[in-house]
Design a protein around this nucleic acid. Structure first.
Lengths: 337, 337
DNA sequence: CTGAAAGCGCTAACAC
DNA sequence: GTGTTAGCGCTTTCAG
């Protein structure tokens, strides 16, 4: 039974075949300078002994690690885990490794992760900002230095970089419009940290939706969750406050927030009996099992991941500095209950 | 505004302070050979210019990457994502980076991932076998060679290595005992690939549970899903077959399988009206929202991750080859509906 | 077409 | 206590 792979080096091959390491290196990389025969010889022998390049050595030399860093708030999140799947599908094809890290919505951890990735010679980053992040100067510096970062979902408007988002306004509008057309008059809005791009855009869509139904916007019906629903406590608190406002419908602006809201309602029989109609962003695959039933705004999460990864790898592999950055905006899908 | 970090090297520091690179290196690593003054000087300057070691160079030299590989079938799985959180909590403290990859229950992809990690100089691996895996010889070779691998959840009985699992028999027994005590007479069992450790152990607990209620074991009431519920099709198929057997209760042996079963039932009004009582393994945080209500067996997923990571890092950092391997077995929690 | 040699950034004998 | 040197495995000028 042969070992799966021994730690052979280029030198071993060179010695065995009476060639120089450089020739072997070139042969393995299919350089035009090497004769077909030598190539065949080298490749055959390399296969026989199951030679693998040492990626660490290669990275050191080439200053390229063939690794992409992903930074999200949490992987145990339907939306993010689907985005990651999309990223991986592309990375896998193009022979990039993917490294995932979580911020848990902490700006400090986010910065640590970014620095860690940067100093670990990641070739580029894919990230959605944490809900706590306000200071993005360091990211700005990094991108200006030429370090490739593609932002998705929660993107910084101030930074010039490739971005992939969805039409948040439209997604929000459709949800609120549905609630409004269902006869709801006091439609609350449960959302994430106030300063985030997605929060602003969805709020804007919410307002348009109200307007379409001739409803007035009332700031008291909007509750922000600083940690984007990462902590159930903040959701419970926000829900209690919204209920005091006698809402009859609610538009919820995030995966964790939507399930968190339902959990909060379920814990309290009185809340449950109010029959508040729910429309929320979520990419959960088990929404149809939920009681009460809810309407949902679904994001093309896998596609977002794919497009973001394509942009990133494109940027990494392009010789020149990008002069124009793309901002891809995808559509959402509204599914009435 | 200063840059977050320039690419300074030890040489730069050495030059600036009129020292040799080795002195700087030693000072930074707090070597006993270096005078306190020099250390202070070096550290202060390093901080000033925001110096970071190049981990690639260090890895090449030390043959250690401070990275752990995690291999699971899917991260969009409540159980696995919680395990990963546990692993990260330890890795983060001990300054290891964590790299995650998915097999999607494919033995081929699993092998590719393992080889990839191995050749990428991961210091060790944490893995749960894919449902498709039967040939584990290559893993055997790797561990025998001294490459640290800690297995969790789905573990290979034949390989000598640290393992972290739960008391699958007891978990299954409690679930089936509950169903039986609720008066169910024909209790089906929906489970994963037949050869997996968890499948065998949970089947054994299922049998004991039946016995406790004076019920006979009927192989026709057991349905295996080769891909562990990764594909809804195979679940639908299995559910249809079980229903034909007139079951009045069901014990389900996995996270995806449990939600998949509920989705299958929900799609079909007739199925739903049979009111089959459900007890299943799942670590979903939104079980309480599900209709029909179900009883669950919960695994201490976070703890599993922590313990596995501790074992792995311990093995990596121990000078000698482990002579005795630990098998940690944790308890489950049964939550009646 | 192939080889010799330098060097990526870091560490660690081995000197002094 | 500090410096010199070699070398981790690889790629890539530069020579031939």
């Amino acid at each position: 039974m042969t070992m799966p792979f021994e730690n052979y080096t280029i030198k071993d091959i060179a010695k065995a075949l009476n060639l120089s390491p450089s020739t072997v290196s070139r042969a393995l990389r299919d350089s035009y300078e090497i004769s077909t025969e030598t190539k065949k010889l080298v490749i055959a022998y390399a296969e026989k002994i199951n030679y693998r390049v040492n990626p660490i050595a290669r990275s050191l030399k080439e200053r390229k690690s063939y690794s992409l860093g992903i930074i999200v708030s949490e992987i145990a999140n339907n939306f993010f885990s689907q985005v990651i799947d999309g990223i991986e599908s592309i990375a896998y094809d193009k022979n990039y490794q993917v490294v995932i890290s979580q911020t848990r919505e902490s700006a400090d951890r986010e910065r640590l992760n970014v620095e860690h990735f940067y100093s670990r010679s990641m070739d580029g980053l894919l990230m959605a900002l944490s809900s706590e992040t306000t200071d993005i100067q360091y990211l700005q510096n990094l991108t200006e230095k030429g370090f490739p970062i593609v932002f998705f979902d929660r993107v910084p408007s101030e930074i010039q970089a490739h971005k992939v988002t969805i039409d948040n306004r439209m997604g929000a509008y459709q949800a609120v419009d549905y609630l409004q057309k269902s006869g709801k008059k006091r439609i609350g809005h449960l959302t994430s940290a106030e300063h985030l791009s997605i929060t602003k855009e969805r709020l804007s869509g919410y307002k348009t939706g109200l307007l379409a139904g001739g409803l007035d916007f009332d700031p008291k019906l909007v509750k922000y969750c600083k940690y984007g629903g990462l902590h159930q406590d903040e959701i419970n608190q926000a829900v209690a406050e919204l209920i005091e406002q006698d809402i009859d419908g609610i538009f919820i602006s995030g995966d964790k927030l939507t399930t968190g809201y339902l959990l909060a309602i379920k814990q309290n029989q009185e809340y449950l009996q109010l029959n508040i109609e729910v429309a929320g962003f979520t990419n959960s695959k088990v929404v149809s099992l939920f009681t009460p039933e809810i309407s949902t705004v679904r994001q093309p999460a896998f596609e977002i991941g794919k497009r973001a990864a394509e942009l990133l790898i494109g940027q990494i592999e392009s010789k020149h500095r990008e002069e124009a950055y793309e901002h891809i905006i995808l559509g959402t899908e509204f599914i009435a209950k």
